[in-house]
């Protein structure tokens, strides 16, 4: 990347301050590459938002139009006529409920895994995490048959329950690290003062672990919000979630691109805001804590 004169290593001032040579003269090549990278990342997203704000003629124009008079008609159509508002509420209900349940169920297990040592711990560990690797199609088949038998197809609670399969492992793995960083002496001191283990957990350890819990909650919300395969198979009209609704416009030849992209934008925008809030922890969440 940089030219190296063979004598460079012998030159003390440069050797001790290797970074200086970049700082002296701004490297324009790097700036240009950075800009190209940013444009390449943002363009597809921008193109969706732009299409949602374009008139029908502008969406279908070729060569594509980069500057246009924006209109919100597609948003009005999506929310008022196509019933996307209801789908978004469905998604919201499912994602919030499954996240709360995953926290209630997952954090105590994480606490147990962080504090106790026993022989079968490793196996339990493996089993909990392996749920993250489970292919949704494996669960979708039996869930479809069971839900059909129980008359629970087209029911949001079915999605809430099935999403626990990936949200509980996520919460367990993210909060466990946090619990481990809280000195056990704090728990022990509280017990000496007469607290039960349950009180130690809910009143002392859990509040101290709030950052981990919040990250777990946000990521669990995002994964549930984004999920489509289960929702596609297990719900029909009434209980459709937003991603399924967005894709349901994709039939026939004359696609309502404005409405499709308005729906897409409505779905994606809140997720991007949430993800930006936890961007520092995104990697930890995606790798189940293996990369800090």
């Amino acid at each position: 990347m940089t030219p190296n004169p063979p004598a460079a290593a012998l030159e003390p001032s440069r050797a001790y301050l290797p970074k200086k040579r970049h700082a002296k003269r701004p490297n324009w090549l790097i700036a240009i590459v950075l800009i190209v990278v940013i444009v390449a990342i943002v363009l597809p997203f921008y193109w969706m938002v732009a299409a949602s704000l374009k008139s029908r003629a502008d969406v279908l124009a070729f060569p594509p139009v980069f500057f246009f008079a924006p209109t919100v008609e597609h948003y009005a159509k999506a929310l008022l006529e196509a019933g996307v508002g209801k789908n978004v509420l469905n998604s919201l209900f499912v994602s919030v409920t499954t996240t709360l349940l995953a926290l209630m169920i997952g954090t105590p297990a994480a606490y147990a895994l962080a504090r106790w040592e026993w022989a079968g711990k490793k196996d339990l560990w493996f089993w909990i995490i392996s749920n993250r690797f489970m292919s949704p199609i494996v669960l979708a088949l039996p869930f479809y048959l069971i839900a059909n038998q129980l008359g629970m197809l087209n029911n949001l609670l079915t999605l809430v329950i099935i999403y626990l399969t990936f949200n509980i492992p996520l919460v367990v793995w993210l909060t466990m690290d946090q619990f481990r960083n809280i000195p056990r002496e704090i728990d022990e001191a509280a017990v000496v003062d007469g607290a039960t283990m349950f009180q130690v957990f809910t009143r002392i350890v859990l509040p101290l672990a709030t950052p981990g819990v919040v990250v777990g909650a946000i990521l669990s919300f995002i994964f549930s919000w984004n999920e489509m395969l289960f929702a596609l198979i297990l719900t029909r009209s009434e209980a459709r979630t937003a991603p399924v609704a967005a894709t349901s416009f994709m039939s026939g030849y004359d696609l309502p691109w404005g409405v499709i992209m308005a729906t897409g934008t409505i779905i994606v925008l809140p997720v991007i805001i949430f993800a930006t809030l936890v961007s520092r922890h995104l990697v930890r969440g995606l790798t189940l804590g293996a990369v800090k």
Partner: peptide, 21 residues
Amino acid sequence: VALVIPLATTPAVVGLIGRLG
């Protein structure tokens, strides 16, 4: 900041963007 955008985008919506693009 930009790097977060594709990661957070709903995969189904990525498919929609692909269809359009």
